[in-house]
């Protein structure tokens, strides 16, 4: 009897340990997001005292700070956070669902599909506002369907889906380049936005549709977080545990594409954020809980920090996507070598 009570106490201690470590990770990431957000608001070309930043945020008119903080830094930081959350969440949902870190939406063409549709809507059809996001979401779903369909043969094999996706992605990239080429009046800055992603010229009213997309699609994803965890054990095991696999997969695809496409319509395809956030979060969280929220927070930190580096810490100014691209490419190479060697999963 004593043996029994000691073993169950060990089981309880073990479970509480996981819960506690998960809570710590979440808090640290949250603090990190807030800290980087605060720094990007306060420190730019000039340093604004924290008190002034706070007063601007509360809507007061502060001489010398209202413009730089309220008009320049705040919209940029808000858009960075929202886009980072969307990319991080949508990316990890795909990676977990397909049990492969390479199955990220920016690798398998969904981001480029949404980007191509957004460029087409803006440049060719002269559209603007939320309708562009709708365009991007529909195109993103279309590409997801296309990649899925092209790689379907007696069920979808992960590697085939990724290779098909890389091909589709390359095609769509050239579509983006072609549209930008044929629009002579297009500025280099805008072109960079659609090629690598940028939060230059961010406006607060761009943030609102993105916030709605985050709340809606993010909510759908979080409601499926338990089933996503079950899917990590394999489709058969997930079904045996009572998960409806195909329904879960469909909901997750729609929600993740919604997130990725909305963010892409707002900032362009910020390179590799969707791809990097999940694995980074995975290293920190290990198996102590769902990767969804940690990965979303990681995405926010990545975009905020990378934009800050691109603006202030490098010689010359670079859009955020150039910095994240420089981070992501080596990791992609590392991953391909590793997967090739051992056939790993996330």
């Amino acid at each position: 009897m004593t043996a029994h009570s000691s073993t169950i106490n060990a089981v309880i201690a073990n479970r509480r340990g996981r819960t506690r470590r998960y809570a710590v990770v979440l808090s640290v990431l949250l603090v990190l997001v807030v800290a980087v957000f605060a720094v990007t608001l306060a420190v730019g070309q000039s340093v604004t005292p924290p008190g002034d930043v706070l007063r601007v945020l509360l809507g007061e008119e502060v001489a010398g700070a209202s413009f730089s903080v309220g008009q320049l830094r705040l919209p940029r930081a808000v858009l960075s956070i929202l886009a980072g959350l969307c990319f991080g969440l949508g990316g990890v949902a795909f990676q977990v669902m397909l049990r492969n870190p390479l199955a990220s939406p920016d690798i398998i063409g969904i981001t480029s599909g949404a980007g191509a549709a957004a460029v087409f809507a803006i440049v060719v059809l002269s559209m603007s506002g939320p309708i562009v996001s709708v365009f991007a979401i529909v195109a993103g779903l279309g590409v997801a369907l296309l990649v899925y369909g092209l790689s379907f043969r007696n069920g979808v094999a992960g590697t085939r889906l990724i290779l098909v996706g890389i091909g589709v992605s390359a095609m769509l990239q050239s579509v983006i380049a072609y549209i930008l080429q044929s629009a002579p009046a297009w500025s280099l800055q805008e072109a960079m936005r659609w090629l690598t992603g940028s939060v230059n010229g961010a406006k607060l009213d761009q943030a609102l549709p993105l916030l709605f997309a985050l709340l809606f699609f993010g909510g759908v994803l979080l409601s499926r977080s338990r089933d996503l965890e079950a899917l990590r054990l394999g489709d058969d095991m997930a079904a045996a545990l009572g998960t409806r696999v195909s329904r879960t997969r469909m909901l997750v695809i729609v929600a993740a594409v919604g997130l990725i496409a909305s963010a892409t319509a707002a900032t362009g395809p910020i390179a590799f954020v969707a791809f990097l956030s999940g694995p980074i979060a995975g290293r920190i969280v290990r198996n102590d809980g769902s990767l969804l929220i940690p990965s979303a927070l990681t995405g926010a930190v990545l975009v905020l920090a990378a934009d800050y580096v691109g603006q202030h810490l490098l010689p010359g100014r670079y859009p955020v996507g150039v910095v994240t691209g420089a981070l992501g490419a080596p990791y992609l190479i590392y991953l391909i070598i590793r997967v090739n060697r051992i056939g790993g999963s996330l």
């Binding site: 073990n14 394999g234 545990l241 009572g242």
Partner: peptide, 22 residues
């Protein structure tokens, strides 16, 4: 099933506790 997948690095206690899912 014949080939269930253990997430990388998962501990025994964690994996077993996932049986409580339903």
């Amino acid at each position: 099933p014949q080939s269930p997948i253990a997430p990388e690095g998962i501990t025994v206690a964690d994996l077993v506790s996932r049986g409580r899912h339903p």
